[in-house]
Every structure is written in structure tokens, then in C-alpha cells.
């Protein structure tokens, strides 16, 4: 089965219906394993047990950026190929990405208070992540402000493409500016600087939360496809009633 076959809403519903229970089970197992690994991981020599917040904060940050990257790719699908499933994927992903961006800021401020002595500073990393959250919220507001779903989809696609410029800014802000936030320590030239005893629980947690995002996105996409079918049925019923 090719990608274009899968990009058919009916086929997507059938395939995702079979896949979802397995994906949800795998997500629960991976997150449970990651939680155990995080609890058993050693304390950091400087940060003590506070480093445990890393096991949720870092995956949330990665997923907030990955979510927005996927939104930008879906936006291309909406604007270039005008594919209905791209619009479904875009609409379903925005609230999920917004939650991960919020959780990144929430857990980061709770990590920052004991380590830096403050919940918040206006440094480049924190500020660009806040901008990412505001972009997600802007997308949600834009969709709900425009009544015509096609027009709303195109407007949201344009905003997500324009806003994508912020994703590399978030990633490289710690290299381009002098920030209180530490520089990259996992994905960097020369390899990770984190000890394997701390790195493996982090990888397990990142895989678990990525699976969670995938599962939730698939569920939300299924609902969105059904919502569009419901809308067209309601329109048909209203038209039939008008001509009866």
C-alpha cells in the first residue's frame, strides 16, 4: 500500500482503527518502563534528584518543536496539494502540540526555580519557547475565528508556515545568544555529554512521549474525519428538509 493510498480518509480510518489498540498498548508500556528507569536513575552530581525533571521536560520540548514541524509539513499538504487529510492532520495536531509546549514551560520553570533561583528569565531559549506556545494558541484561535472550514484551514496553514521560522530559533537560541538556559547536551556535534546512566532513561521517556503524541494525534484525526462526515450529513439533511 502506497502513501497516497493511506492518505485517503476512509482507508486511514480502517487502518488506524486496527493500529490504535496496539499503539496505545505500546505507549503505556514504554511510558511505564521510562518512569521506572527515571525513578531508578542516579542523582546528578550537581543537581541532585532535581535532574529527574529532565526526563519529562526535555521530551516535552522536543515534541513541541516536532509537533510544529509536522504542522508546517501538513500546511504544505494543505496549500500545495490541497489534500483533505493534510487539513485533518493539521487541525488535530495543534491542540496536542500546544499542550506539550505548555508542559515544557511549566516543567522548565519548576526545574529553574531550585537550579537558577528563578521560575522565569527572558532569555532567548525561554522566550522563543513561549513564542512557540503563543503560535500554537494563535493557530487554535484562528481556526475558531473563521467560520468557513476551508478558509480557516488555509489561513492556519499560512500562519504555521510563517511561524515555522521560530523552530530553528528555539533550537539554536542557546548557541546564537548568551542564555541562562544550558546549551544542547544530547543532539550536538561531538555527541551527547550526558552520562549513559542518565541518557537511557531520557531516551526511553522521549520514545514513550513520542508514541503518546502519535496515538493522541491518530485518535484526534479519526474524530476530525468523523466530524466532517457529520457536518456534511447535517447539511444534506437540512437541504432535504428544505426541499421536502
Amino acid at each position: 500500500m502506497g502513501l497516497m493510498d493511506l492518505a485517503n480518509p476512509t482507508r486511514f480510518l480502517a487502518l488506524s482503527g486496527r493500529l490504535l489498540p496496539w499503539l496505545a498498548g505500546l505507549t503505556a508500556l514504554t511510558l511505564a518502563l521510562a518512569f521506572v528507569l527515571a525513578i531508578r536513575a542516579p542523582a546528578d552530581y550537581q543537581q541532585g534528584e532535581t535532574v529527574k525533571i529532565m526526563y519529562i521536560h526535555v521530551p516535552f520540548a522536543w515534541l513541541a518543536m516536532m509537533g510544529y514541524t509536522l504542522l508546517a509539513l501538513s500546511a504544505l499538504g494543505i496549500l500545495v496539494w490541497r489534500h483533505p487529510l493534510a487539513d485533518v492532520a493539521h487541525k488535530a495536531l495543534a491542540p496536542i502540540g500546544a499542550v506539550f509546549a505548555f508542559l515544557c514551560l511549566f516543567t522548565g520553570s519548576l526545574w529553574g526555580r531550585p537550579m537558577w533561583g528563578t521560575y522565569w528569565v527572558w532569555d532567548a531559549r525561554l522566550t522563543s519557547m513561549l513564542v512557540l506556545l503563543l503560535l500554537y494558541l494563535g493557530l487554535l484561535a484562528l481556526r475558531s475565528a473563521i467560520e468557513d472550514p476551508n478558509q480557516a484551514g488555509r489561513a492556519a496553514a499560512v500562519l504555521s508556515l510563517v511561524g515555522f521560522v521560530n523552530v530553528p530559533i528555539v533550537k539554536f537560541s542557546v548557541d546564537w545568544w548568551n542564555t541562562l538556559h544550558q546549551p544542547a547536551s544530547v543532539f550536538r556535534m561531538g555527541g551527547s555529554t550526558i552520562d549513559p546512566s542518565l541518557l537511557w532513561p531520557l531516551i526511553a521517556s522521549a520514545v514513550g512521549f513520542t508514541l503518546l503524541m502519535l496515538t493522541l494525534h491518530m485518535m484526534a484525526m479519526r474524530t476530525e474525519i468523523l466530524r466532517r462526515r457529520l457536518r456534511s450529513l447535517e447539511a444534506r439533511a437540512a437541504a432535504e428538509a428544505a426541499f421536502a
Binding site: 534528584e49 532535581t50 529527574k52 525533571i53 519529562i56 521536560h57 508542559l103 511549566f106 516543567t107 519548576l110 526545574w111 526555580r113 531550585p114
Partner: peptide, 8 residues
């Protein structure tokens, strides 16, 4: 802080 981050 750790509990608040995980529970929240």
C-alpha cells in the same frame, strides 16, 4: 518541585 512537575 519534582513532584509538582510530574503530578502537574
Amino acid at each position: 518541585f519534582i513532584i509538582a512537575a510530574f503530578a502537574g
